[in-house]
Design a protein around this nucleic acid. Structure first.
Lengths: 225, 225
DNA sequence: CCATAAACCAATTTGAAATTGGTTGAATGC
DNA sequence: GCATTCAACCAATTTCAAATTGGTTTATGG
């Protein structure tokens, strides 16, 4: 399907990788398999993947794999056992404290290029055509902020919370609840967060993210009788 | 040494357990071994351990074990790999956000009995005769607050941070830095935190814990040239 | 009814093997 | 020469079964 007789051009390679048909649940095949599938050498594949990773289009983790849009999930930590008994309220309580702190640190430490990319990711959330692609863009947006905070411990905690959130199928319920009015409110908040971070205003970034988390919590916790 | 011909009294059992000679690094032998060592039935041993756990003198975790003063450490999570490359500054940055939030929740949700016990634990930090026993009392004090927050996710995150902190041998350096003047300041702060929590004042508890964390950070990060 | 003992259940840890991205260096081809 | 390819190896992570540990139930005997 994607294979040609002669070797693929770099652009073809990029398209094949980003196309998603080589990934399952956002996770690409291993480099070795991928190289053989695409009939290219691993060296060249890795070169392309290096570029994609630098551009933020692909996420890699050492013993874990290479991932498309959604940044890599977590290792099987003790939180796994929690996934069942944890309530959305408890999770949001944690996010309500964690993410504003991350936003503040991101505003303080984020590099110029990171901030530029964050603006682009924010725009992605605005122009998302459907709920599913919105969820993905939103996911990347928040992840990028956590990454920009520049604290590996914080990032790990964030990823564990994120994986907990994904472990449960709250996304379905959440998507059903995300109406038009909430959507525009959230978009405004995302914009405020991104702008505050780019401006380097730690306190503004913190409060903007806090208000956003309050909104998200109210959406998540609305009863569906 | 502890064994008698006839079966031990309940009080003797408690003393033997809390004595510490049956524990290694704060962790007791398994119930089966312990029962045989003390020449009592496991049922009875568990009955006594139940009491001790209720009184907060012993901490138990399912597949993990039973622990003396220091609450149980963490599972081998991804944070383990971090222990090497993580800096004290990064860790304190996280504690500076986490613990005030926990203190606020503890003030909001802590039961009356929990608050009473917290006061006792606070007093333990005040009367600690040496640095080592102070560290232990301080550890339990902060753990109790995290526990009182009543959010299992938050508690897990706290425990992971705590284990990271213990993985490194910063305690030595920290102990060396804890001078008399810092000691009294920290004591005052502990008292303020406990009082705020017992009064149910969330904001006061939050700020008191925040100031305490700032103090701890300044102590931890002081250079030792 | 209570204490004991044994068996079983459930959560966790442990450790070896497999998987994956990352790195190096020799061989190859132009 | 120089870049590409290939192979082997390194390092981080996951996976999976076995062992360990606290928790629970059941049967037994006083």
């Amino acid at each position: 399907m994607v294979v040609k007789e002669a070797s693929l051009t770099t652009q073809e390679l990029r398209n094949a990788i980003l196309g998603g048909s080589l990934a399952k649940d956002g996770r690409l095949m291993s480099e070795r398999v991928l190289a053989q599938t695409l009939q290219v050498t691993r060296s060249r594949l890795r070169g392309v993947l290096d570029d994609l990773a630098r551009e933020g289009l692909v996420f890699r983790r050492h013993g874990q794999g290479t991932f498309l849009q959604p940044p890599p999930a977590q290792a099987p930590s003790r939180l796994d056992g929690l996934a069942r008994r944890v309530s959305p309220a408890a999770l949001m309580e944690v996010r309500l404290e964690l993410e504003p702190a991350l936003a503040a640190l991101a505003a303080e430490r984020g590099s110029a290029s990171d901030k530029a990319r964050l603006l682009r990711l924010m725009e992605d959330t605005l122009i998302a055509p459907d709920l599913q692609s919105y969820e993905r863009a939103d996911d990347i947006f928040h992840y990028k902020i956590a990454e920009m905070a520049g604290n590996e411990v914080f990032l790990t905690l964030f990823e564990e919370i994120r994986s907990l959130r994904q472990a449960k199928d709250w996304t379905e319920a959440r998507q059903a609840k995300l109406g038009e009015e909430n959507m525009t409110a959230v978009s405004t908040q995302h914009s405020a967060i991104a702008n505050a971070i780019c401006a380097g205003s730690t306190s503004a970034a913190r409060t903007a993210m806090y208000e956003h988390m309050q909104q998200v919590r109210s959406v998540v916790l609305t009863e569906t009788p």
